[in-house]
Design a protein around this nucleic acid. Structure first.
Lengths: 349, 349
DNA sequence: TTGTACGCGTTATCAT
DNA sequence: ATGATAACGCGTACAA
C-alpha cells in the first residue's frame, strides 16, 4: 500500500535527483546533466548514462531547472469572457484547441485562465504566477485593462485580435472590415438592395469592425443603411429578436455579425413563413461547423479559428526567441464561403 | 523603447529579488520574506517593509519558491478527448469552468492538457512537467492508460467519473445507473411500454452505466428491451439516426443517453410527423442549457456539471493537504427534471 | 524579533 | 571529454 513504484511494468530503481543518478552510474552529476540535455559527451558515456537513466524513474525537477535557466517552457493563455458567453460560443473552444495543439507540438505547457474573476484579479494572478515564458490573450473589447496590464508587463505577450491602439503589440487577427465588406458586396451583387445587419456586441472590436465593413460596402454601392441595423450581442437569441425587428422595416437580405445570430435569424424568418434565400438572402460570419448543416446551408466568412490559435502560439514562440525584433503582426486570410442561403439553390436535391 | 516600467501609473522602483528589497529597506532578506509570507515580525517592521514593497515592482520568483517549498500552487487538468468530441459537447466546457472557477478561488494555477496527443504522450508530458501539486483527470472510458499512469504516479490524482476498477482512487462522480433507472421509471409511470434507448458511446462508463440503469428499470417493470436499443455515440447525429431506426420497430417513448442525442431525436421525430410527447415521450440526460429551450422543453437528468468540476477541485485540495487519509469519493446527487417532452403539456401557452 | 547561513536540484563556468 | 564548483532566488532552522 506504500507509495512505491507499484504498477510500473519493469520495477525501476528510484532516483529523485541528478546526484542519485550520478551515484548509480559512477560519474559526476554534471555529466548526467549533459547527457540529458545533449551537451558534449562521448558516445560511450552517452550510452552508459542513458542505460542507467532508463533503469530509473528519474525525472528532472522543473522548478530547479527553471530557476537556473530562466525559462519554464510554460506559456499562459488568458481567455477572459463571461462564462456563459465562453461556452456558448464554439469559437473559443476551437481557438483553445488550436493553441493547445500547437503548444503541445512545441513541447510547451499551457496555463489557462478563464473569465471567472475580474480583469484586475486575473492580471495579478497571471503576473504573480511568474514562471511563465509568455502569454497569449484574447483582445476582443475596445477597453481592456487586462490586455493593457499584460502589454505593460515584461512578459512577452501575444494578442488574438487587436485594438487599433495596440500599435507596438504583437497580434494575430483577421481583417474584419474587409471581410464584412466582402459579404455585403456579395449580397449587393445578387441584386439585393435593402440589406440589414445584426451587429455583434457593442464594444467588441470584431463587432464594430464588421459594422464598418458593412457600412463601407453599402456606401460604395450607393445604398442606404438607415434603419437597417440592429444591435445584437453575438448570441443566437439576439439574432432572432433582431430579425423580427428588421423584417418589420422591410429587408431583402440580412448579414449577421456571426453564425450563431444567423442561426437565430433563420428561426425567425422561417417562423414568419418566409423563404431563404428567395425572400431573404442570409449570411453569417465565422463558418462554424454547424453553418454548413443549417437548412439551407449558410453563406458565411471562414476565418480558420483553429489556425488563429496555432498561429498565435507560433508567433509567440518567435517573439520569445527574439523579443528585440519588434512586434509580430499576423493577419490571417478570410474566405467567403457561398452556400444556398444566398445563391438560391433549390431547397433539397 | 527600453523594457523599463513604461506604462506603470506610479513609477515603481525596480526590485527583482528579495535581496533588492532587503537592501532598499535596510533589513535582512529573511525579514522581508517573513513579512511577505506572514512569518513572525513586529508591527512596525510589517508596516515598514510593506511600504517599501508597495513602492517596488517586486514579484517573488515562483521557481525558487517551488524549489524550496516543494509545492507550486499549480494543478494539472487533463481532459483527453477527440477534439471534435470535446468542443461539440458543452459538458466539458462547463466542467472546465467549474474546475477553473474553484482553482481560481483557491488561488491555484491550472495547467491544461487537451486530447491532442496520444495518451502515452500526454502522460509523459504531464509527469515530465513536474512542479504540479496534483492533477484532475476525466475518466470516461473503461480502458485508459492515461488514468492508470496518473494513478500509479506519486502525483495526487482526482478522477472525474470512475471505472469500477478504481477502488483505491479518489473521484467525483454521479450514480449513472440510478439516474438512468429513475428516468426510465418515470417513462414507465406514464404508461409507456415500448421504451427505446439510444446509448452513449461504447466503452464509456457513463454510456454503459446508463444502459444498465435503463435495463434494470425495464426489468423491474416487467418490460422487454428486445430490439429497443440503438448504439449511439453521444453526438446529435447519432440521435437522429438511432431514432429513425427505433421508430421502425415501434416505440412509444425514448430515453437518450444525453441531451445532444435527444435533440437529434427530436429532429427525426418531427420529420416523421409525430408529436412529442403524445406519440413519443422523450427524455435526455445532462440538462444542458439548451434542453429547457427545445420545443418542447426536454425532460432530462440534471447533474450539475459545473458543480462536479468545483467539487473535484475541492476534493483534490483536500487530498493534497492530507494524502494519507485514504481516497476521497464524492457522489453528487442527480435530479430528474420533468418537462413537457414527457408530461404532455399543450405545445405552447 | 531579527539576522546568518544552509539547502532545495539544476545548469553553466571553469579547470583539468 | 569530464569533474569540481559557483550561481539561480527563496524559505527556514538556528543563533543572536
Amino acid at each position: 500500500m506504500g507509495a512505491h513504484a507499484r504498477g510500473d511494468p519493469a520495477t525501476k530503481r528510484s532516483a529523485r535527483t541528478l546526484d542519485d543518478v550520478a551515484a548509480l552510474s559512477g560519474v559526476s552529476r554534471a555529466t548526467v546533466s549533459r547527457v540529458i540535455n545533449g551537451g558534449p559527451a562521448s558516445e560511450a558515456m552517452q550510452r552508459h548514462v542513458q542505460a542507467v537513466l532508463d533503469g530509473t524513474d528519474y525525472r528532472p525537477n522543473a522548478a530547479a531547472r527553471t530557476l537556473v535557466t530562466g525559462h519554464s517552457g510554460v506559456v499562459g493563455v488568458v481567455i477572459h469572457l463571461d462564462p456563459h458567453l465562453l461556452f456558448g460560443d464554439p469559437y473559443f473552444s476551437q481557438l483553445l484547441q488550436g493553441i493547445a495543439d500547437q503548444l503541445a507540438e512545441q513541447g510547451a505547457g499551457m496555463m489557462l485562465w478563464l473569465g471567472n474573476r475580474t480583469k484586475q484579479e486575473t492580471l495579478d494572478h497571471v503576473l504573480w504566477m511568474g514562471l511563465l515564458d509568455g502569454v497569449i490573450v484574447t483582445a476582443n473589447t475596445r477597453e481592456d485593462p487586462l490586455v493593457d496590464g499584460l502589454l505593460a508587463s515584461p512578459l512577452p505577450t501575444l494578442l488574438i485580435g487587436h485594438r487599433s491602439a495596440d500599435l507596438s503589440a504583437s497580434y494575430v487577427d483577421v481583417d474584419h472590415v474587409a471581410a464584412a465588406a466582402m459579404v455585403t458586396s456579395h449580397l449587393v451583387s445578387l441584386g439585393r438592395r435593402r440589406i440589414g445587419h445584426i451587429t455583434g456586441r457593442r464594444g467588441t472590436v470584431a463587432g464594430e469592425d464588421r459594422i464598418e465593413g458593412y457600412r463601407r460596402a453599402m456606401h460604395r454601392a450607393g445604398l442606404s443603411t438607415d434603419g437597417l441595423m440592429f444591435e445584437g450581442d453575438f448570441n443566437k437569441p439576439s439574432g432572432t429578436v433582431g430579425t423580427y425587428a428588421l423584417l418589420e422595416r422591410g429587408i431583402d437580405a440580412l448579414f449577421c455579425g456571426n453564425d450563431a445570430m444567423a442561426s437565430g435569424a433563420l428561426d425567425a424568418i422561417r417562423e414568419r413563413g418566409l423563404r431563404v434565400p428567395d425572400d431573404i438572402a442570409l449570411a453569417g460570419f465565422d463558418d462554424l461547423d454547424f453553418a454548413a448543416h443549417l437548412d439551407p446551408p449558410l453563406t458565411t466568412v471562414r476565418q480558420g479559428v483553429r489556425e488563429q490559435g496555432s498561429e498565435a502560439a507560433l508567433a509567440l514562440f518567435d517573439l520569445m526567441r527574439d523579443p528585440g525584433a519588434g512586434p509580430r503582426r499576423v493577419i490571417l486570410p478570410t474566405e467567403l464561403v457561398i452556400r444556398p442561403s444566398t445563391v438560391g439553390a433549390t431547397q433539397r436535391g
